[in-house]
Design a protein around this nucleic acid. Structure first.
Lengths: 352, 352
DNA sequence: TTGTAGGCGTTATCAG
DNA sequence: CTGATAACGCCTACAA
């Protein structure tokens, strides 16, 4: 009970030389353990990194010594001969975008559960910055998760040729990716809107470099005919509240009865701008988004949206990386199920 | 123009041996450069890591060779002899808590601007998990930012003795910390409420281990007398919307005209629970929070809150770490200014 | 099963 | 100013 996990105090009665050495360096090495246990350093290495390959009593002695010295592997020293840093990179466009929180959490959980460290890089929505940050991280990670990437296909392939890569919300030939089931979500949303009597929609697209934005629009076009809907694309837009606010003018020009936004932030921006102009949502204009981020149900009226499984996406991405790293080949994923969440921002078309 | 940053292709006409070696290993080393430039590896190291200490022509040759080979230092190899990983850890309680977004962004910006890598660990609001995650990261980082930590003072000191530490929202003797100006924010908020005629308040405290929650309450007690306010503490509460919802019962038992929550999430939870019971905010109950997180102005009515400079806090914390690492002693910070943001959730007391 | 020896890529200490 | 050479802490054939 006196020895809470991670305490840094050293055992009192240790051979003074060893104690001194450990104290001087700030951490024990396998050499210290070896000396304390009376074995060779390589034996310590084996005992601690591949348990079972060693005689039980020796292993016990070594473990005891390691315990006494509060030993931890030096990750850098370990990475040198093996080339494995036990670190994964997660590259996101914008950390403050609620969409990525879930991804980050899922990735972090999966990584730390496997004893891996996750480093996060932000691209600030710039492909240039993203490329730079990724290159900077490449030498020190074992694999990369590109979430909501703005990089070109070629660039992604180039990276994937050097280290394992898993994409989120992006499909590139030959590179594994975790994708939402775009179709079912879009279909459910459009059917919902059609059922409310809407016939004329605007799709507010995301950044020009967003693959998923294109996919959503493409699917909307595919099903719109069957549902008797006219869909106009307005964009590209910054995937932010500001982007949504700025888009209202052009939305109104198209005179739709409903607008579907690339994500919830844009949707929220449109609602705010509409409210500022006295346009009543959903009576005069229905609004819907994608992702179901924090805040979507706080706004008035609460936002109708297509929920994505962000945490799961993050988890799967790093699990895929880990699988690849341990030799299993080419993870392939089923698309993640997507759910329409109907709230107050969509309603029957006026005078329908 | 053919050579975009980070491209991985090798110069065509390289000595075949070198090219082969580089390709096999996936990256060039200072040995490859040395051979190509006809100098000793140690000279390459010097030329590239401490420019100026070497003759101009030699340095030029070396740089050219490095360029041709697309050389990057191997961070792990570099960390071994120096003990410096150029990596910083940021430990937060909950990544999905909007409060930490700003901190993360600020920290990430400051770190990458200095060529440092930031690794983020999450403690899920558990001191145990936090200690574990921190210990796990310790060997591979040069310093640690503990944001919203739930660790004990002793534990923090213990960590700070091993690596540079900067705290956010927590003061511990002898450990540098970035703190908001608690007093000015609390004072402004209570004056605002007193001015609206409120006399009876509830303070919904945060987690029992939150230092800043205690400080806020302490300051409330200090100024309440002067303002003629009665303040009752209700808590501890989980710093989440759910925590706020759950607290409403006990809030009402104290029959206050206004409630001040430890943070915006709790405030939002209270408002939601109140709305569910038909209690009108702010007519029957005023509600205020702290932090001004994303979502605070989206909710209806928008939340009155005390804004904290989260991004700046994150920046300062890592800047402090970097300063310490480069030998400058004990950074000390002025408290970060705090701003009362009055919105719709606070109003004149009913029947005042 | 365990010990020996060499290497991983870089820095640092000494000579020259 | 530059070249050897020994660390740094760990892993891994290879040998015993």
């Amino acid at each position: 009970m006196t020895d809470d996990a991670g305490s840094t105090r050293l055992d009192a009665d240790l051979p003074p030389e060893i104690a001194a050495r450990v104290r001087r360096r700030g951490a024990a090495t396998i050499y210290d353990i070896a000396e304390l246990a009376g074995v060779n350093p390589s034996t310590v290495s084996r005992a601690l990194s591949k348990p079972g390959r060693i005689s039980a009593p020796t292993e016990a002695k070594i473990r005891a010594a390691a315990e006494r010295l509060n030993f931890r592997f030096n990750p850098m020293a370990r990475a040198l001969p093996t080339g494995r840093s036990h670190t994964l990179a997660l590259v996101v466009a914008d950390i403050t975008n609620p969409v990525v929180f879930g991804i980050v959490r899922g990735a972090e959980m999966a990584a730390s559960a496997a004893g891996y460290t996750l480093v996060i890089a932000e691209s600030q929505e710039s492909g240039e910055t993203e490329a730079e940050a990724t290159e900077r991280l490449m030498p020190s990670v074992d694999g990369v998760v590109l979430a909501t990437t703005r990089l070109s296909d070629e660039r992604i392939v180039d990276i994937a040729e050097r280290k394992p890569v898993v994409l989120i919300n992006r499909a590139v030939e030959g590179v594994p990716g975790v994708l939402p089931d775009v179709n079912s979500g879009v279909d459910a949303l459009l059917e919902h809107l059609a059922g409310l009597g809407h016939r004329s929609l605007v799709y507010l697209s995301g950044p020009a470099t967003s693959w998923i934005s294109d996919r959503r629009f493409a699917r909307m076009m595919e099903v719109s005919e069957r549902l008797g809907l006219a869909v106009v694309e307005v964009g590209p837009n910054a995937p932010t509240i500001e982007g949504g606010r700025a888009a209202l003018r052009r939305v109104l020009a198209a005179k739709p009865s409903a607008v579907v936004a690339f994500n919830d932030l844009i949707a929220i921006g449109v609602m705010q701008a509409a409210a500022a102009q006295g346009i009543v949502v959903p009576d005069e204009l229905s609004v819907a988004g994608f992702d179901d981020i924090f805040g979507s149900e706080l706004i008035t009226p609460p936002l109708t949206t297509v929920r994505a499984q962000l945490v799961t996406a993050g988890e799967r991405a790093v699990q895929g990386l880990l699988a690849t790293l341990s030799g299993e080949e080419g993870p392939s994923y089923d698309p993640l199920e997507t759910t329409l969440v109907v709230r107050g921002s969509t309603g029957a078309v006026a005078g329908g």
